[in-house]
Design a protein around this nucleic acid. Structure first.
Length: 625
DNA sequence: CACACCAGAC
């Protein structure tokens, strides 16, 4: 009990210093001549003792050239302080050093960088260039370039590049070259400069390759990343699990199950299948490529799993099979793994997709118990979950109690309002967001257009569509056009909607026709003749079915038959729309006309109660929202 | 054996 409390305390401290929770219990801080190793823990007094001993050492502060042992010991201590997130103590010790050498300066730069205090690292480097008598070495430049990467500052990085070149380390140290490569890959819009650096590295190592592949993958250019990965093989560079992990992520990014499987085979061949991070990427890749079966197989075959393994699979199942996701969550705990913010965020999503309010509330309770209620992604998922489970008030409460909002929070709340028919509230929210200085992106516009569409605020929606191109200078995507067409058609403005379909810069795809036809159907509008000339691709079965139903409604049985034939030829099946009802602790899903099975009885019971309530309400007053 | 570069999840 006491131990776990202690652990928690350290974790918090380490967390606040922005570090991962490794190496915090004790750390090797140095070796003495006799081979003894000093170990440090923040709960014993050894470091302070050594620190004070240093201070007491004769002439420590006045000597211009302190003995090497003292220099080494101080530097070791500085590193140990940083490793434990004790920035102030590290700084204090450094300031006490009479004549810090290049190694001590570098330890400060890299220490600050490792703790995420990039600005301090950069300042330290500047102080060093001004004050230190030593010349910076390769260690210094690789550290400071990493700090530039952390600051996302191209200009600082360029200064670092110039100085590193001046001191002869560009092309002279693989560490400096790699840090430089990484800095350009992280700070620039394009990979141009990074590629330039890469081609000039005399002997590339696996780190160089990994950085390049990472650069392309993070720019969502999975194909370029895989090309580099391939080239790495052709040039017979040494292999590392890092490059595999990221190349697999690239496959996930482009949704290529085929490439993913090939790399998976390579992983097995080279024996990287014992590497947990690599296997976790493979799991993620399969689930992102809709190959949950393969993902599950990999999961079953893994001898060793970590928390991320569980999180990856739970996240993978959250949408396609939320029930399975929740089961895995329970299993995870039984296996002794601790759920974290990623786990909770996924299971909340799973619960949202089941529209299972009670289940969502229970998980929310657990989140509170674990003190994670202010976690941003979790709060965002909660907004979505409560909205999808029918409790918009709770979504609203979560949103207002959050201490900060990101783009996802605003969008989720807008979607929540929109799906409940609160168009005005969604518009108000968008104004608030813009006033707080956030520039709306495509997703936000889609959310607001949809909200306006569902609330019948046609002109309001159109004004936002206009604003997109005039004020925010974004060219509307295919999806945006689909939203606007939906807005117009639902609002009964079929002519305008049809004109827009004809004049938009895209060839109308299924989503556009689905929006248009759906609205026509809802308004009992006859099928527009032009629809017969549709160039429909045979995958959107919904459109054929919609069309067939519309022809049927008009009594055009020949046309209906044509459509049904198209459906059959394409071999597509319309997925039945299901509804859910939560009765006691059970969620029942059913389709229209679903009458068989004993398990449907509670649903009918609940429906009868609901029906009675509605009748009573209507007798008293008109039903509101 | 004082200081350095790269990977995975919502």
């Amino acid at each position: 009990m006491k131990d776990s409390q202690k652990r928690l305390e350290i974790e918090e401290d380490v967390w606040s210093a922005g570090r991962k929770k490794t190496n915090f219990n004790s750390h090797e801080i140095g070796h003495y001549g006799d081979g003894k190793i000093a170990r440090m823990s923040r709960h014993n007094q050894i470091p302070l003792l050594i620190h004070s001993t240093l201070k007491w050492t004769k002439n420590y502060k006045t000597q211009s050239n302190p003995p090497p042992l003292q220099q080494k010991l101080s530097t070791n201590l500085i590193k140990a302080y940083f490793d434990n997130g004790l920035l102030k103590q590290a700084r204090q010790l450094f300031d006490e050093m009479p004549n810090p050498d290049v190694v001590a300066w570098t330890a400060m730069v890299s220490g600050y960088t490792a703790c995420g205090h990039y600005n301090s690292a950069w300042m330290m480097f500047n102080d060093m260039m001004r004050e230190s008598l030593d010349r910076p070495n390769a260690f210094t430049f690789s550290s400071v370039l990493k700090a530039c990467k952390g600051m996302k500052s191209f200009s600082c990085g360029a200064v670092g590049h110039g100085l590193a070149f001046k001191h002869g380390f560009v092309g002279g140290s693989i560490y400096v070259d790699n840090a430089l490569l990484d800095m350009y890959a992280s700070c620039c819009e394009s990979m141009e400069r990074a590629l330039l650096v890469f081609e000039h590295i005399p002997v590339k190592n696996q780190v160089s390759w990994t950085i390049l592949i990472t650069g392309f993958t993070h720019r969502d250019d999975g194909l370029a990343a895989l090309q580099v990965f391939r080239r790495m093989f052709m040039e017979e560079s040494e292999q590392s699990p890092y490059s595999f992990s990221i190349a697999i992520r690239a496959c996930a990014g482009i949704g290529s199950h085929i490439y993913g499987k090939q790399i998976h085979a390579l992983v097995v061949k080279l024996g990287f299948d014992l590497n947990i991070p690599v296997m976790n990427s493979i799991l993620d890749m399969y689930s992102k490529c809709n190959s949950l079966y393969e993902a599950q197989e990999c999961f079953n075959e893994m001898n060793e799993k970590d928390d991320i393994t569980w999180n990856t699979l739970i996240a993978g199942y959250a949408k396609p099979d939320p029930m399975k996701s929740l089961h895995l969550f329970l299993q995870m705990e039984l296996q002794g793994c601790t759920p974290d913010c990623f786990t909770y965020s996924s299971v909340i999503t799973a619960s949202a997709n089941l529209s299972a309010l009670t289940c969502g509330q229970q998980i929310h309770g657990r989140i509170f118990k674990n003190g994670l209620e202010q976690n941003l992604p979790i709060s965002n998922s909660l907004i979505d979950m409560y909205a999808k489970s029918g409790s918009i008030q709770d979504s609203r409460r979560i949103f207002s109690e959050m201490c900060s909002h990101d783009m996802v929070s605003w969008t989720s709340m807008m979607v929540a309002f929109g799906s409940h028919g609160y168009g005005t509230e969604a518009v108000e929210l968008l104004n608030q967001m813009v006033n707080s200085g956030i520039k709306p992106d495509t997703i936000v516009f889609m959310a607001i257009l949809s909200a306006c569409s569902h609330a019948g605020l046609v002109d309001q929606g159109l004004s936002y569509f206009k604003l997109m191109t005039t004020k925010y200078k974004t060219s509307p995507s295919q999806e945006i056009y689909a939203c606007v067409i939906d807005l117009l058609a639902r609002g009964g403005r079929f002519e305008d909607a049809y004109d827009m379909i004809c004049s938009m810069p895209f060839k109308p795809d299924e989503s556009v026709w689905a929006a248009f036809l759906g609205a026509c159907k809802a308004h009992g509008q006859p099928v527009v003749t032009a629809c017969q000339e549709l160039d429909l691709k045979p995958k959107g079965s919904g459109i054929y079915v919609t069309l067939a139903n519309m022809y049927a409604a008009e009594g055009k049985w020949d046309d209906r038959a044509k459509m049904r034939t198209l459906v059959d030829e394409a071999g597509v099946k319309k997925v039945a729309g299901t509804s859910w009802l939560e009765v006691h602790d059970q969620v029942y899903s059913f389709v229209a006309g679903d009458g068989c099975g004993s398990q449907i009885e509670p649903v009918y019971q609940a429906l009868r109660v609901l029906g009675r309530h509605m009748v009573e309400q209507t007798n008293v007053t008109q039903v509101g929202i």
